[in-house]
Every structure is written in structure tokens, then in C-alpha cells.
Design a protein around this nucleic acid. Structure first.
Lengths: 354, 354
DNA sequence: CATCGTTACTGTATCGGTAAAGAACCTCAA
DNA sequence: TTGAGGTTCTTTACCGATACAGTAACGATG
């Protein structure tokens, strides 16, 4: 026996296939009795419901939106902060009945998820500009939302005030009297190592913005920071190492500004391993205000961003973009920037010699 | 201008639509020159690649597998342990080019993701038996894998030795000399509260197994535990409250066995809030050996399970199930049970009066 | 009684592709 | 010269549904 389709049911009931389709998808197009009869027969035949693939082709909707996270899903999922973002998206999406498809950059036998999986739209979180996934999704002309990426015209974006937050962090450190300052930043591409000059081009949007934010007040104060640039893999380990390297420099930095709380925790551990104390010997500032920050000892001074709001904003921007693509209205393309706020906790203090 | 399809390109190049399809999907079916010409024209016309929906309908593959987590994605994603599981799945899936679609139980306007999203298969992690998502996926006859659920015949499953692990935990506590023992368990359905008798029916597989494991050595030792049963929402808060309730009982328990490390942490905090100390006054055992366990102070004695192995096993079982459904072979249906191991850390000790 | 609006259902065209078999042509050994 | 076998492209036949226009029946309206 072949597969049960709308036609099978239609034949059994003695109506047209379209009426069966309506029984499932547009209940008000037929009488209640007939609908019940159709559903009963469908049930009897073991029919589950309109086949998603057929429906998707005919109706033009897939019922799922894509999410590309940092190109490497594996590491994104070890990051508490990224997971919180994911959770916020999931929560915002749930009541819409849309599923969330996690896309990876990997491909197999010419099958590229970002190109070949049916989607109604996609969220791009913190991807490299030259990411192949981003490229495919763009070429598909899917409704998109960029999160933590350089805004592009015509594509909705959600960012946080990275620059302002970083500037606040730097100002805080300067006001405490620090002059020997180090920065630990991080990115997925470009050069790694310790630089006298901060990296210029070729860094992702978020990193660039934070760098600009940190550097501005320092420039005003005529302070030149040492910059260590790390990869993305294991923030704790890399922070630990970076701390060792930075602390070996002369003059030794008395304050370290970090790209994230996860890195800051590694740096903190590295400082303690070097026999120094935070904040007495070295002050640390993190970024993001992830749960880590409040939990660590000493509690991290950090730049807070509302990851929950970011996730929800991203999801609803995507819903608007999908609506716009479908009906032509749904508001105009928005470039949202959520605020950041410096949270002073216990990891920063005036330098010793002050 | 309408949309660019295979036909558009075929007309431009002057070949049949099928040849264009082959140019994209089966390169060895045509000459390299013609293929290049076709791809060039396709590129020129802004054609991205075969439309995923059309391809899905014709070929019968969607390119994505579903994952249902605990019915409430929101809470699953706040659970470090569940996220680690997700990460392991994602990692195992990545090289296969399959995307991972997160399914929720919610529906909207009669659209039910588990029924209406195109998938090649699905993983069900720790769902209630009567979960509507599980029900739909089963009825669709999709290749499935059950994880942390009662094995069903014909459906691959991955579990851990919950019962043995729990028994080891209970035995450890008994051997230390404890006789006044409490259990803090947790489930998404059924009755909540403190019971003299442990809940019987109507609890999910994992909970049941762990209960059976804890109770068996206790029965042998003629010890009757107090059982507190919590919901799923906020393990820390609920553990905190449960601790308060249990400590108020007479005789006061000297050891508490917890369903998870997340709950154990709440219980630990509750014990300390009550002015008691762990493990001097009260011993605690967790479950899972999530990162939390080693991190907490005192470090938690817990039952270790290899969440990474679980995730990978689940993913590859699903791949096998998909293969089986497609080609008829791919091995037989397996019911895997991964080992657990008691990890004794600092949260357990002999009771005071011992 | 002719006209009109509803309700309830049907017919036709299409969505964008793939599978499988067939045809045309070319190569090369016997 | 022939014919087996390979390469390359085409033909035919779907995959399972939805959109949209159309029609029949029926009661209401003037």
C-alpha cells in the first residue's frame, strides 16, 4: 500500500482533494460535519497531517528560521552568554510556532546547510563578514537580521552600545588612577599575539567597536595600552596565558580590560597564579555581565548588556522582516542599538602607587 | 521579472531543465564545459542553487533533524548540562551537513512544529511520555532516537545507568553511616511536595530509575527516606526551599540525595542559609557531574555521566536510524546504556554522631 | 420572480525540483 | 564493420500540497 496523501483521503470520502486540504488548513471553508467526517477518515487511514515538504513548496513557508552562531556552534554553546542569547530567541519564537534551525558552516558532499535547508528567515549572530554561511543566506535573499555585526543597509540589525560601554570601562580605570593598562581582546580571524599598537582593520564589528571605545579615553589621557589578541577556542585557558604574558612585561600593567567575562575569568586566574592579587595588584574589567561576572571571586567589574533583550529584539526583528517580505509591510528596516552600562564590582580599585 | 528557476537557466543555456539540475546536484552526469557554462549563466541570473523546498519534496530529504528538549526549551537552555548535551549533538552532526532544528511544543494557529516542519528524523531528549511533540513525531513515522526516556521497541534509545548510579550514591551515604536521609527529586508532571513514601507511577523514566536506585540499598538497610519532589523551573530556588523544608523535619536528615547538581547547589545554599555546614552537619550528593559540581564550594560528590558521549551516541544513533529508513540497512535498532560513576568530592562525610 | 450575496465545495494550474529510463553519439576492440 | 559500453543529454512522470478562480445551491431582498 502506498502512502496516504490528501488524494487518498479525498477518494475515500468522495470529495475533492482541495476540500481535504481545507479540512486541515482552513477549517472555516467547509461545513463542520464534512470536516469531521474527513478528519475521521484521515485518522482511520493513519494520515498525520499535510506533508510539510509539500506544504512548504506550495505555500512558500518552511515553518522554521535559521540561526548562525559564530560559525562554530561547538564553541558558541560552551559560552554561557551565547546560550542565554539563544534561549531568549527561542523564547520569543515559541509563541509564533516557528522552529529554530541551528546552522553550521560545515558542508558535506556539496550540501551546505545555509544554502540547502528550507527556511523562512535567519538570524546571524556575531559572524565574520566573509562567512560562507552569511554569504549563502544573503544570496538566497532570505529575511535576515544581523546581531552583533556591522549593520548593512537594507538588513535589520541588533547591536549593543559596545563602544560606549568600553569607553565607560576605560574611563573608570583611568579615573581610578591607572596608567599602565592592558587590553585582552579576541577574534576569530586575523593576527594573534601581543601588540604595541591595537589591531586596525580586519577585526569583526564587535571587537572593533570595543577597541575604539577603550582607546578613545586612553588617547585623551595619553595612555598607550598593550594589546593581547586571542583566538576563540578556550577563553579561560587563553586568558590565563595572556595574563602570564602581559604580567611579564615592564612596566607591568596595573589594569586589564577584557573582551568578555569569560576571558576575564581566565585572566583573573592567571593573575592569581602569578602570585598577585585582584584588585590590589591588578584591576580587571570584563564585558557582557554574564552570570560568570557576579559569581567570580572577586566579583567582576564589567560592562553590562541585556542579553535577554538582545535575543528578543533579534527574534522580533526577524519576524518583522519575514512579515515585510511576505506582505510588503511590517515596518521599516530597523538598526537597533541596545544600551550598555558599567557595573562596578570588586575587581577594580586604585593602583597601589596611587 | 519572475523568479529564477532551473527552467529559466535551462532556457537561457538551451538545454533541458534536468541537465541544469544535474549541473548542481550530480556534476559527473555532464561534461565539465557544459557544467561551467550552466553555472556561469546561473550566477549571472542570480540563481543561488536548487530551491530547498522543491528539492525536499522531490528527493524526500529535508536536510535537518529535529530535537525536542524537555518540552520547555527555555528551561532546558538554562541548564548547563542540557546545553552540553546539545553541543555534543551539534558537534556530531556538523560533519554530516545536517542542520539541527529545535522544536518546541507550542503551537500557533494550528501550526505545530513537531508535525509541520520538514525533518529527516528527530531526537527526543527527556520528554514526557504524553508529550504532544513526541506523539506527532511518532505518528509521522520519522526516524527517532529516545534519550533519557523509557526505551520503546523499534525505536533506538540512549540512556545512562541512572539506577546503578543512584544506588552507588545511596550506598556511599549509607556506608558513611547516615540513617536519616532525604531525597530531592524533580519532574515536570505529577505531585509536588514532601512525601513519606516515594512517588510511584507517573514519573518520567529518568526520575523513576534514579528513585529505584536510591531506594534499593536503603530498603536493604531498612532506612526510609523523606522525599521532596520539585518542579522543573528554577532548580536553585526550588532546591533552596526544599532544603529549608527538609531541615525543619524531625529527625533532621543528615544526608540529602539530589536529582541533579543544579538542585544540589540550591540545597547546599539552603543548608548554609539555615546556619548548617556541608558536609559537617549535612552531606549532599548531586547527579550528572555537570561543571557546577566541581565548581561549587564544597565541591559536590555526585554521580558522573558522560554527557558528551551521550550526545554523540544519540546523534549517531539517529544517523543510523535515518540510514535504516532510507536504505533498509544501517544496523539494527540499538538500546544503549552508558555507564555512570560515583565521584566522591567534598560534600559528603560521616554524620556527626557517628 | 429576477437579483444578489453567502456558503460550501471543485477544477485547474502551479510550486521547484528529482528519479529513472531512454536516446544520441562517440570510442575502441574484435 | 560491427557492436558493446560509456558518456552526455533529454523525456516522462511524478513528489504532496496550496492558490485562486469558478460554480452550484440556497435563502434573502425588493
Amino acid at each position: 500500500m502506498g502512502r496516504v496523501t490528501l488524494q487518498t483521503i479525498a477518494d475515500h470520502v468522495g470529495v475533492s482533494r482541495m476540500t481535504v486540504s481545507n479540512a486541515f488548513s482552513r477549517p472555516n471553508q467547509l461545513s463542520a460535519q464534512l470536516r469531521d467526517r474527513i478528519l475521521a477518515v484521515a485518522d482511520e487511514l493513519g494520515y498525520v497531517g499535510p506533508d510539510p515538504t509539500g506544504r512548504a513548496l506550495a505555500s512558500g513557508t518552511a515553518g522554521s528560521v535559521g540561526l548562525v552562531m559564530s560559525d562554530t556552534l561547538r564553541y558558541a554553546l560552551t559560552d554561557e552568554f551565547a546560550v542565554a542569547f539563544l534561549a531568549a530567541i527561542a523564547e520569543e519564537l515559541t509563541p509564533t510556532g516557528l522552529a529554530l534551525t541551528l546552522l553550521t558552516t560545515a558542508e558535506k558532499d556539496g550540501f551546505i546547510p545555509a544554502r540547502d535547508v528550507a527556511l523562512d528567515g535567519a538570524l546571524l549572530y556575531s559572524c565574520e563578514l566573509k562567512s560562507p554561511a552569511l554569504d549563502w543566506l544573503t544570496r538566497r535573499r532570505l529575511p535576515l537580521v544581523f546581531v552583533d555585526q556591522a549593520p548593512a543597509s537594507g538588513i535589520a540589525s541588533v547591536n549593543v552600545a559596545d563602544r560606549a560601554g568600553a569607553a565607560a570601562a576605560a574611563r573608570h580605570i583611568l579615573e581610578l588612577g591607572h596608567r599602565k593598562i592592558a587590553i585582552v581582546t579576541c577574534g576569530v580571524a586575523g593576527d594573534y599575539g601581543v601588540f604595541a599598537d591595537p589591531p586596525g582593520r580586519n577585526v569583526a564589528h564587535t571587537e572593533r567597536e570595543r577597541l575604539l571605545g577603550w582607546l578613545e579615553p586612553m588617547k585623551e589621557a595619553r595612555v598607550t595600552p598593550a594589546v593581547a589578541r586571542l583566538g576563540h577556542e578556550d577563553p579561560y585557558e587563553m586568558g590565563l596565558e595572556a595574563a602570564a604574558t602581559l604580567l611579564a612585561q615592564t612596566p607591568r600593567p596595573t589594569a586589564i580590560l577584557c573582551f568578555s567575562d569569560a576571558i576575564a575569568r581566565g585572566v583573573l586566574a592567571g593573575i592569581e597564579q602569578a602570585g598577585l592579587s585582584v584588585p590590589k595588584d591588578v584591576s580587571i574589567v570584563g564585558f557582557d555581565d554574564s552570570p560568570l561576572a557576579a559569581r567570580s571571586r572577586p566579583a567582576l567589574t564589567t560592562v553590562h548588556q541585556d542579553v535577554n533583550a538582545k535575543g528578543r529584539a533579534a527574534a522580533s526583528a526577524l519576524l518583522a522582516a519575514i512579515e515585510r517580505a511576505k506582505t510588503g509591510n511590517g515596518g521599516r528596516v530597523r538598526h537597533l542599538v541596545l544600551p550598555t552600562e558599567l557595573i562596578v564590582r570588586a575587581s577594580t580599585a586604585a593602583p597601589r602607587d596611587h
